[in-house]
Design a protein around this nucleic acid. Structure first.
Lengths: 241, 241
DNA sequence: CGCGTAAAGTGTCATAGACCACTGTTCCTC
DNA sequence: GAGGAACAGTGGTCTATGACACTTTACGCG
């Protein structure tokens, strides 16, 4: 288990061992770890070395110590960066739904003042404008309009859109997606949305505006979505510092 | 300088001493700290104790170590909680509003099944339940109910709440806030909210549920907020990977 | 049976010494 | 002068040990 001859420090071997046990649910949230003295005896190493290992696990958010009681596995692994930037397609798959689209319109047009400003492109530059209904398990989930500058994302077709825009950008164009800035607000459906999303009058919807940037900082997408509030909740993880 | 008889641990006295020197610019960014052995000699303490102090400073982002070279003061610690996890108070200040509260109720009670489950505490354990109206520039912005387990956050008073809970936890209790998980959804005001938030019937509100965790993984706060959709938009930044 | 106290177990703090790998300097050789 | 080897200093790792404070459990007294 612990190889004293290995060039890998002993304390680090122990860190990895305990991490693995937590990930494999051998040690579950709330469980007590063996005591420091016990680890020291078991592996015939110094207690200070055990301490060094556990201190690292504490700093990494895996466990916490309780004076006079023991060391316990934490509830939520803070470390897991599972909650990153995802597309609708990825988002729905993660939630266990089968995502699909109903295309309403796909066209190339000149950017309006508003859109050009958002995407930081010249007024009147060409953009793709895509409007579609987003479905999850064939149920309408959201109405979405997307604007993409033609000179940044080239060769866009309806087929690409049916698959996954993000996948196309990363796999086919070889561009790295960097970050996104989103604004979320609450609203009431208008008449058009009522019909398209099969909602009654006065139903609440979640408005999400998203600006997405490539890793080099160029904006490549501006999206306005209206999600059915009865079917969709937006989840995020955030951390201090 | 270092008092071995003090109940304050030696390593911690050293941490504070070095922190002060950095804050008072006696040690400037880029400067080398005295070596571990030098500290040990100067204050006649063990090198391991010095090491413990410096390790804390490394974890807190004050300094970094360079093998075979020395320990250096980091560049100015950028105040970073910006796009991260912020309280209502911090959030509003950032947006240029003056935040305030109108307390509706403040009590200690037994956790309901639902709340105990959320906060991962024993059923019937004591929690603070705080309900208040959040104001920005004296205009009602949100209705918020907060549950805080008594055994995790001790000594909570109305005065503390009027100031800032997060500030109290970090400054007074010395606990580090770790991460939060939020769920955002859209809804329509109910009658009670209508009156308290001065909204017309059928107005949309943004529901935000937040679970907040200490750095050690313990949940310390569960909040349900209802924001006026006409005044509040939720902004987030996220990045890939 | 209840309550307090003792014991056992835990993390916390601290000591002193040792060897290692890495970095920068100094000095010697060619 | 250039190159390399030796050296001194630094952080990184590890051992072995001890005292202390806090928490839970067990026991024994009343």
């Amino acid at each position: 288990m612990i190889d004293k001859q290995s060039p890998i420090p002993i304390y680090f071997q122990l860190v990895e061992k305990i991490q693995k046990e937590i990930e494999q649910a051998i040690l579950k949230p709330g469980d007590v770890l063996p005591s420091e003295r016990e680890y020291a005896d078991t592996y015939d190493i110094s207690r200070m070395t055990v301490r060094q290992a556990i201190t690292k696990l504490v700093n990494d958010g895996y466990v916490h110590r309780k004076k006079g009681t023991g060391t316990f596995v934490n509830e939520s692994k803070i470390d897991q960066p599972l909650q990153g930037l995802t597309s609708f397609t990825e988002d729905m798959r993660e939630r266990g739904f089968v995502p699909s689209n109903r295309m309403l319109s796909f066209q190339v047009r000149e950017a309006s003042d508003y859109i050009a400003g958002k995407l930081n492109i010249a007024l009147g530059a060409q953009v793709y404008e895509i409007e579609r209904i987003r479905l999850a398990d064939d149920q309408p989930m959201a109405l979405e309009t997307t604007w993409v500058p033609c000179d940044v994302i080239t060769g866009l077709t309806e087929e690409v859109i049916y698959d996954s825009l993000y996948n196309y950008i990363e796999s086919k164009l070889g561009l790295a997606i960097g970050s996104a800035s989103q604004v979320i607000e609450s609203s009431i459906v208008n008449e058009r949305e009522m019909n398209l999303l099969s909602l009654p009058e006065g139903a609440p919807v979640l408005l999400i505006e998203r600006m997405t940037f490539l890793a080099d900082g160029r904006p490549f997408e501006f999206v306005k979505s209206r999600y059915r509030a009865d079917r969709y909740r937006f989840r995020i993880q955030m951390s201090r510092s």
